[in-house]
Design a protein around this nucleic acid. Structure first.
Length: 463
DNA sequence: ATGTCC
C-alpha cells in the first residue's frame, strides 16, 4: 500500500500553486481511490504536460481545465436589487416562498423570475419557482428529483369500464406498478436510454447505471402516483382531433428515481464547493455552464430527464398491453428541469422547479389531487411567467401538519364522497393537503388554456 | 425526492 497522494506530490510533479491542485486532489479522491499512486502520478504528469489533449475528457477534463484556466474561488456578493419577476395568485402563496424567490433574483447570474400560483417553500428555489439565469445552472433550481414529470395516455375505452371493470383495473395497478424505495419489476424491459453515451463517458454517472436499470418503470414514493380516471375533452380545437367527450385515461407522476437523486446530490455538492455565497442563499450555488462541471451537470441532468421519461414509457407500455387498447393521445411534460430558452432576446437557462413549461402551443398536464380534477393544458407563451404555469395544486398542509391534524377515517370519507378507490397512499398525501385546484387554475388564465380534464378514479400510491 | 450523511 503506497502512501496517500498529497498536494506536495503534485507540486513536486510541477503542478502550479493554484486551484488546480485542489481540483486534482478532489478528483483523485472521487475517481481513483483504488488505483496505485505511481500510476495516478504518471497520468497526472501527462495531463500537466499536455492539458489541451484532455479537454472534455470524462476523467481528466476537469483537471485539464484547472491547468488551462485557473480560477480564484471567491465569495459572490448578491445584487442590491432584484431582477424583474411576476407572481401569480399572490394571495395564495406563503411569504417564505416569496422571500426565497426574492433572494434568488439577487444572484449575480439572475435575469428574471416568476412564482406560480401553487408555490410553496422549498430548498433553495421555492417549489413553483421559475428562474432565468445567464450562463449558470443551479442544481437546486432544478430540484432533487430531476425530470420529475407527468404522463397521460388517453384510451378509446368507454368510461363505464371504470366501474364495470373496476376490479381488473385495480388489479393492474396493484400488480403492475412498483412503489416505494426498494420495489422493482421482476420482468425487466430494456430501453434505448441505456444506450446513451453519458452512461460511459461520465464516470460518476457510470456507477449509477446498474441501479437505474433495476429501477426502470418504478414510481418511487412521496407524491408520486399511477392512476386510472376519466378524461373529458372540452375543447373542440384540441391537439388530437378528438371528439369532445369522455375517455379512460392513465395518468402517472414520477421522476428519475435514484439516478436523478444521486446526480442532484453530487452536482449540488460540487456547486456549493466552488460557488461560495452568503449563507442564507448557499443552496442556490450554481455551476458555470462553460466549465467542465457545468457541462457535465447539463448532460447528466438531461440524461436523468430522459430516464424519467423512459420510466413513464415503461409504465404506460406495461399497462397499455394489459388493457389491450391503442392510445389515441399522449400528453407528457417535465416539471423539475432546466431548459435553454430565450428571455428578452438573450439565451438563458430557465429553471423550473415544480412548474410546467407553457410556451405558446405547448401541451402539458397539471394534476389536481386524488379527489379533484387535473387539467390538460396548452401554453399561451406568457413572457412574464417565462412561459410557465403551475405543476399542480400545491400543498396547503405540510406533511407534518397532515399527520398531526388528519385522520384515516376523514380521508376515507372524502375518497368515498368522490368515488375514488385508493391503493396505498399515506395520510400526508390526503386530498385535503392540497390547495383548491380550481382557484389555482383561475389564477393562471394568462398562462395556459384548458383543453380538457382528468378526474382520478382508481389511484395507486406508495404506502 | 432519495439506499433519507460526502
Amino acid at each position: 500500500m503506497g502512501k496517500k497522494l498529497s498536494g506536495k506530490d503534485l507540486i513536486k510533479l510541477g503542478f502550479p500553486k493554484n486551484n488546480s491542485i485542489n481540483v486534482t486532489l478532489g478528483h483523485i479522491n472521487r475517481y481513483h481511490k483504488r488505483i496505485k499512486k505511481e500510476q495516478i502520478l504518471t497520468e497526472a504528469k501527462k495531463v500537466l504536460l499536455n492539458p489541451e489533449n484532455y479537454k472534455g475528457d470524462g476523467v481528466w477534463g476537469k483537471v485539464a481545465e484547472s491547468l488551462l484556466s485557473p480560477v480564484e474561488v471567491k465569495r459572490h456578493a448578491l445584487k442590491t436589487t432584484r431582477s424583474p419577476f411576476a407572481i401569480y395568485g399572490e394571495n395564495e402563496i406563503d411569504d417564505q416562498a416569496k422571500y426565497q424567490l426574492y433572494d434568488a433574483l439577487k444572484l449575480p447570474v439572475a435575469v428574471a423570475g416568476a412564482l406560480m400560483p401553487d408555490a410553496h417553500t422549498g430548498y433553495g428555489l421555492p417549489i413553483g419557482g421559475v428562474l432565468a439565469t445567464q450562463d449558470a445552472v443551479i442544481p437546486y433550481g432544478v430540484g432533487v428529483d430531476i425530470g420529475c414529470r407527468m404522463c397521460l395516455t388517453i384510451y378509446p375505452i368507454p368510461v363505464s369500464f371504470l366501474k364495470g371493470k373496476k376490479h381488473q383495473l385495480e388489479n393492474i395497478l396493484a400488480e403492475h406498478t412498483k412503489f416505494g424505495m426498494y420495489e422493482t419489476h421482476k420482468i425487466k424491459h430494456d430501453h434505448e436510454v441505456f444506450e446513451r453515451g453519458e452512461f460511459t463517458t461520465i464516470p460518476f454517472v457510470k456507477r449509477l447505471k446498474d441501479k437505474a436499470y433495476k429501477q426502470l418503470g418504478t414510481s418511487g414514493g412521496g407524491n408520486h402516483f399511477v392512476e386510472f380516471g376519466e378524461v373529458t375533452i372540452t375543447d373542440v380545437d384540441n391537439a388530437w382531433d378528438l371528439p369532445v367527450g369522455s375517455y379512460i385515461g392513465l395518468l402517472s407522476h414520477s421522476g428519475s428515481r435514484g439516478l436523478g437523486a444521486n446526480i442532484a446530490k453530487h452536482y449540488t455538492y460540487l456547486a456549493t464547493k466552488q460557488c461560495p455565497l452568503p449563507k442564507h442563499v448557499q443552496q442556490l450555488a450554481w455551476l458555470d455552464i462553460n466549465t467542465h462541471d457545468g457541462q457535465e451537470y447539463w448532460l447528466a441532468m438531461n440524461l436523468a430527464g430522459d430516464y424519467a421519461k423512459a420510466c413513464h414509457d415503461d409504465i404506460h407500455r406495461r399497462i397499455g398491453k394489459l388493457l389491450g387498447s391503442r392510445p389515441v393521445a399522449k400528453i407528457e411534460n417535465h416539471h423539475n428541469f432546466a431548459w435553454k430558452q430565450e428571455v428578452n432576446g438573450e439565451e438563458c437557462i430557465v429553471h423550473r422547479k415544480g412548474a410546467t413549461p407553457a410556451a405558446k402551443g405547448e401541451l402539458g398536464i397539471i394534476p389536481g389531487s386524488m379527489t379533484a380534477p387535473g387539467f390538460i393544458v396548452r401554453g399561451l407563451g406568457n413572457e412574464a411567467s417565462l412561459q410557465s404555469a403551475s405543476h399542480g395544486a400545491g400543498r396547503v398542509l405540510s406533511r407534518r401538519k397532515c399527520k398531526e391534524t388528519l385522520t384515516r377515517s376523514e380521508v376515507k370519507k372524502e375518497l368515498k364522497a368522490h368515488e375514488v378507490t385508493l391503493i396505498g397512499g399515506g395520510i400526508d398525501e390526503a386530498p385535503m393537503a392540497y390547495k383548491d385546484i380550481h382557484k389555482v387554475m383561475a389564477n393562471q388564465q394568462e398562462l395556459v388554456e384548458v383543453l380538457g380534464t382528468f378526474t382520478p378514479k382508481i389511484v395507486r400510491m406508495d404506502t
